[in-house]
Each structure stands twice: as C-alpha cells, then as structure tokens.
Amino acid sequence: MSKFAFAAVALVAAGATTAHAADMPYRSRAPYTVAQPLNAYSWAGPYLGATLGYEWGSVSNTGAKPSGIAGGVTGGYNWQSGNIVFGLEGDLQGTGADDRFATYKFSNPWFGTARGRIGYAFNNVLLYGTAGLSFGSLEAELNGLQQSQTSVGWTAGVGAEVGIYQNWTAKIEYLYVDLSKNTYTLTGTDSALSFGTVRIGVNYHF
C-alpha cells in the first residue's frame, strides 16, 4: 500500500475528529441495528453513493503501467453492534487508465468489487478495513486490433468515513486490486493487471 494512500486516510481521519466533536443529530436505526449505543450516531442500514479517484498499476509480462481517473457507483448495507460496524459493499467503476508499451496499448475500461467491511465507529467517524472479490477488464490494442479479457481476482483496503449532514456521509478509501492472468494472442503472453486506487466518495444512508 502506498505512503500516499496511508497519508490520505490519516489526513481525513484527523479532519473527521473535528467533525466528531461537533454535535451530530442522533439517528435511531432500530430496524437495522444489532445493538446501537444510546445517544450515538448510527451507521446501520442500507446506503447508495458515488466515488471518484485515481488508479495506477502494472500489467505483468509487459512494461505497461496503466493509470488514470476512475469513478462510479457504490452501494452496501451496514449492521452495528456497539462501536463495531460490519457489512457488505459493492461497486462498479469506469476508468480512463491506460498506458503504451512498445507498439501495444493496455487499458482498464472498468472494474468492480464485492467486499465485506468491518470497522470501529467513534460516533460519526468510522475507520474500517475491507476485502473481497474483484472483477474487471484488461484490453490490449495493436495497430487498430483489440483484444479484451475479463478477469476475477481479489481486493483489500482501508478507509475512513464521516457523517457530515443528516443522512449524508463522505469517505476516502484505498483499495489494492489484483486480477487473474489471461492469454493475449495479440501479445503472445499471459498478462494480469494489478493496481491501487485512492478515491473519495459520498453516501446517502436510508
């Protein structure tokens, strides 16, 4: 995991502490909560949101290092027991990550994840870890010819999320994504894409 990712998460967590000090409205989420502390901010229940970030990675058996903007939609469901928050989250991202190596161009048009999350809530501040399944596309291009392969793999990361206004939260997150190898006849090699991504996002909690 990059030093930049750790620094970004730490920065938001520090800023979140200030937000934590301000009075946040108490929200009862009884239908969704396992055991919510009294007079505390609730993270329980379903949510939908959007993310925007930056991706950088590498393609095995080549010198290509695709990078670019990535953004998309996310959704999930949290349960809460005391200060422990756990749940499931999925997302789908479109990206502009690409790079040229010799006469070849490699790009990652899209990727998605399906993950578990577990974290610790300091009232309206949530620090969490996440891991699960990843899937996405790696495309090779040569002289106008294209070959695209869809792969599955794994992902893991960390993040910080802050309740900012009523049902709205903001977050910053780092994910590492590793997709499995596929054979590319255009290049004559077996290649796989792995990358890191740092992204910010907003969620609406129902």
Rank of each mutant, 00 (worst) to 15 (best):
D99K: 14
T33H: 00
D91V: 03
S134V: 00
R100A: 10
W56N: 03
N83S: 11
K65A: 14
V158N: 13
A30C: 01
G82N: 14
Q166D: 08
S81M: 05
T150W: 02
D91Y: 04
I118G: 10
T150S: 05
T197W: 00
W43I: 10
T18V: 13
D190S: 15
T155W: 12
T74L: 09
S81F: 05
A70S: 14
I84G: 08
T51Y: 03
A22M: 11
L142H: 14
F86N: 01
Q36K: 07
W43G: 01
V34G: 04
K181V: 09
T197F: 00
L179C: 06
T113C: 03
A64F: 11
V59F: 03
V85E: 00
L88Y: 02
E89P: 06
T51L: 02
N61R: 02
S2W: 14
G63H: 07
A160R: 05
D23K: 01
Y204W: 09
N167R: 09
W110D: 03
G201L: 11
A19N: 06
S42Y: 00
G68D: 13
A10P: 06
P109Y: 15
Y32T: 11
T189I: 14
N182W: 15
S180R: 07
T95A: 11
I172F: 03
G112F: 07
W168T: 09
W154K: 09
N39Y: 05
V162P: 00
P37F: 08
G163Q: 01
G75T: 04
A5S: 07
W56S: 05
D178I: 05
N83F: 10
G94M: 08
Y176I: 04
A131G: 07
G157I: 09
L38E: 10
A19V: 08
G68H: 11
G71W: 10
Y47Q: 14
F111E: 02
P66N: 05
P66Y: 05
N78V: 05
I118Q: 01
S58C: 08
T33A: 13
A40C: 01
S180L: 13
S28R: 09
F106R: 15
Y176N: 12
S58K: 11
A102L: 12
Q147P: 13
A97P: 03
A16L: 00
R27D: 00
T18E: 10
Q166P: 05
F111S: 02
A8R: 06
S194D: 11
L127Y: 08
T62R: 04
G68F: 14
T150Q: 12
R29N: 02
G90Y: 04
E161K: 06
